[in-house]
Write a protein that binds this DNA or RNA. Sequence first.
RNA 1: AGUCCCAUAGCUCAGUUGGUUAGAGCGCUACACUGAUAAUGUAGAGGUCCCCAGUUCAACUCUGGGUGGGACUACCA
Length: 1133
Amino acid sequence: MSKKFPEYKGLDLPKVSNAVLKMWDDHDTFRKSLRSRDGKGEYVFFEGPPSANGMPGIHHVMSRAIKDTVCRFRTMQGYEVKRKAGWDTHGLPVELGVEKSLGITKEDIGTKITVDEYNKACRKDVMKYTDAWEDLTRHMGYWIDMDNPYITYDNRYIETLWYLLKQLYNKGLLYEGYTIQPFSPAAGTGLSSHELNMPGCYRDVKDTTCIALFSLIRNAKSEFLFKGIDTDGVKIMAWTTTPWTLPSNTALAVGPDIKYVRVRTANPYTSEPITVILAGELIPSIFPADKKLEYTVTGTYKGSELKDIDYEQLIDWVKPDDGAFRVITGDFVTTVDGTGIVHIAPTFGADDYRAGREHGIPPLMVMMSDGFMGPMVDRRGRMVPMDDLDQAFVATHVNTATYGRFAGRYVKNEYDDTIPEGADTIDVDIAVMLKQQGKVFRIEKQIHTYPHCWRTDKPVLYYPLDSWFIRTTALRERMIELNDTINWKPSSTGTGRFGKWLENLVDWNLSRSRYWGTPLPIWMTEDRQEEICIGSVAELKIEIIRSIDAGYMQRNPLENFVEGDFSTENYSLLDLHRPYVDDIVLVSATGRPMRRETDLIDVWFDSGAMPYAQAHWPFENKENFSEMFPADFIAEGVDQTRGWFFTLHAIATMISDSVSFKNIISNGLVLDKNGNKMSKRLGNAVDPFSALATHGADPLRWYMLTNAQPWDNLRFDISGVEEVKRKFFGTLYNTYSFFALYANVDGFTGREPQVPMERRPEIDRWIISLLNTLVKEVTERYDEYDITPAGRAISGFMTENLSNWYVRLNRKRYWGGGMDDDKLSAYQTLYTCLETVALLASPIIPFYADRIFTDLNALSGRYSEESVHLAPFPSYDKNLIDKDLEERMEIAQKMSSMILALRRKVNIRVRQPLAKIMVPVTDNGFRQRFEAMRPLILAEVNVKEVEYVDDTAGILVRRVKPNFKLLGPKFGKQMKEAGAAIMAMTQSEIAQFERDGSRDLLLGGVAHTVTTGEVEIISEDIPGWLVANEGKLTVALDITVTEELLHEGIAREFVNRIQNIRKESGFEVTDKIRVVIEDLPFVSAAVQKHSDYIASQTLALEVTLAPAAAITGPSARETDIEEQVVKVLVEKV
RNA sequence: AGUCCCAUAGCUCAGUUGGUUAGAGCGCUACACUGAUAAUGUAGAGGUCCCCAGUUCAACUCUGGGUGGGACUACCA
């Protein structure tokens, strides 16, 4: 054991980090921390798996700092906090990355490259940045078990997913359906919303739009609309930007509360008089003044009145099922553009599809030659060619005369490279056709934004696609109930963003038509009548055996798999990915072959199922699962609200009827210093590796966690990190260095018996009191997952109270020889503060805190633990908290600062002693408090005495201030008047008021009594004195410098100058010297009188005066005293 | 479009059930200190507390409506 506290030449935090990392490695500290103390048991934490195929960014440091801080804190509290790392390995970003690096597209998979090769590439690619991630994790000090991570592509992981899916299947929560999804005909694939949100996907395009006229059918329901018209029928106007969807129209939607009008006007193309219906609000946009269209409003209706009215099919190409061509109502209808009436084509719009379902409107479908029903546009983006239609269907449902000319046409010219640029689109042709038929009111080119496929650059269609869904809507109420029990930080994310999301929940579309992901474990017969959902590898093996018996498979790919053996070797004998699972053909109950649905599942299911899958539950860990679920705590960015947070919650609710996590911090984004989102493209992304290397992990963590609440967006500015380094770490370092320097000189070890608290000086008890207050506050804040205020409290204590006040005021106690109780108390007090700060701050700044802790502890041996992270979190002793003392010290601090300000005002330096200050005291309590602080204040401001002034002498100028909080409710509306009356009191009235304890105010002729308890009386001024006041405190300074004071001041100036010369000359602190000062009239008396004082302060054996001529040689200096040049000689003896 | 967050000094942020002089740090300017010195202190300048309306004796604080920035979800005639 070293005999001294280590001293350092400078603060090099990256170096500290590396040394501490090595120490952790050498001692296996992380693993040692994974245990439960004091019977505290488990504290469960879930790590959200990052995808290792992208480089980590600075925002990962943010969320991981939060996680690490909480986990370290709970560990110190005695909990066992297991932390299993995880990797998200499936999904689109991986596939896209691979396709890019291989230079292929999705269409090439299965042709240019086999699925097997492709998936092997994905498996390899997904871990390509693992090293970088592990490096970041290590260097930022994030403690997590990276040796045994869960990996979502692992067969055991997938097996749990299959088990969960089968549970859902058995509960009837997994079903097949179809929805309208973005689809790229050019790429032949559906697109995820993520793909649609890629930059540049939404582009302005010029499309042909038209306002179509739908003729109403006159019958009992619509008769009221026909009353009093003089035209041939009534038409509804509906606007569309995609005329190619008009042939698929099966309904029109109106807003139930929107006002509609009946208007008589003329068809601009045929001049035929017509009567039309549209939203009243939109008349100005449909009949703009400059177009000079005549129109007359002939009726007004509410949207709800138009419900269920029938109309004629606009374009008679294909006959739909019964129930089409009706007016329906929908909340989504607005009057911001168009006509206030929305054309509904359930096969080509999400809203349309939903509205159609709700109102029982059939979609317009055609039967293909293979017998399947489909939308009127095929997957290549063409109006289905005649030859592809079922001929019987054509005979009964298709108007070949009208449709023939359009069959086979692409709905967007971009889909066919042979169509010349600028050629008419089908939209134009349809519009022209309608014009000829008098069924259109206006045709216009219009620019609007439309999504494009990011890969082919061609427009996207909204298209009905088959999908498997999880019926999350069935559990909606339960999810909302359970969510109410979760402690969200910030709470608004839980009730707001997440709560609202749950309320508006739709079923979870699970299907992805990709290759690299968890396969859907459902096998079906070709006619889709029989199906099976597989829930484990063992089950699959049995089904394969049955299939072999039935002759559908030759050999069993799982033949060597041993059920119940969960070793890596056993699970390496198989691969549950495509294409292997696709090769498995199972046999149905009736003996027919069943093939797997080719879909993969949404990767969000992978990550949301991690509480189960990381444990390979229920195959393993079935008994102790309650120790692993649910999580006490998780944390990720707020962007995970609808991602990971939701899937965790949804799966836990459906599988376990439980929350998945009890406490959650959702942090905001990390923006650049100008508040812009960081992106590689803009070049404003901060590289976490260089930031860590330059500044060290601790300042980065401290900055990120204390600069702003984690859920506010952080404007990341590296100069903020530097500031933190200077301010907080610099102070901490300086304070430790100061301590170590003198402790080593004095041989203080920290093992000395503690000086009892009651025998320590007031100022020691004060800082100890503050320290205990700090421990209390920090513990409470950490407990509430409020890291930011905890860190700020530590920083405030450290810089303001400990360094700037306690150390500064007590420096002298550490100097000089010998070790008495006072000095020992000073050391012990400072030691305790440093040690406690290290413990409190260690969850946030694990490296430097451990360095300070181990440096202190190595000598003192106060803790048996070898690292701060293994030590128990400090507890506070409420007996050591003395609020009155804290208040007293506050008075002292304020008073000192006020007096120093006064000195500054009249330019009297602190070295110049002054005779006295005057302090008004009108109550005894204050006097006692001040008296206790008197020596401290006087020393700090270099004043010799204090005089208390009570008002008996009548020299204080006093002021009364109303206490609005007390008087407000009493006076109500008269408060303003009362306040003015109170403040208008004269000095004698105030004196009288104080003697009586109450006073009557006359307000509006009524007397009201005000007591002294309801006001604040302060002594504001002492006429003739230099006075400062702040709040209730007032102090006056006697600025008369007598000759005697001046001499003392001059003596001090000399001490200062001589000290400087000693230092410049490179003398040791212990060198003895000889001093000769030039004998000038204004210094001689001062020097003679105070020569002993000067000598004692500067370790001079003698201090003499001599004429200037005698002061020569290399040791002679000139210095300024009171703006005059004085020659001084300082020599070592 | 919906939901949510944010808006206080040049910058980053505090501001505790509404109470009358709105604070801190950084930066700037000036001064002081000089046995913590690659440190420290004091002071000064710097604010329409985003805007408007309401509630109230009293609004930075509460309510409503805007504006601006950001996020997520959705994408619609």
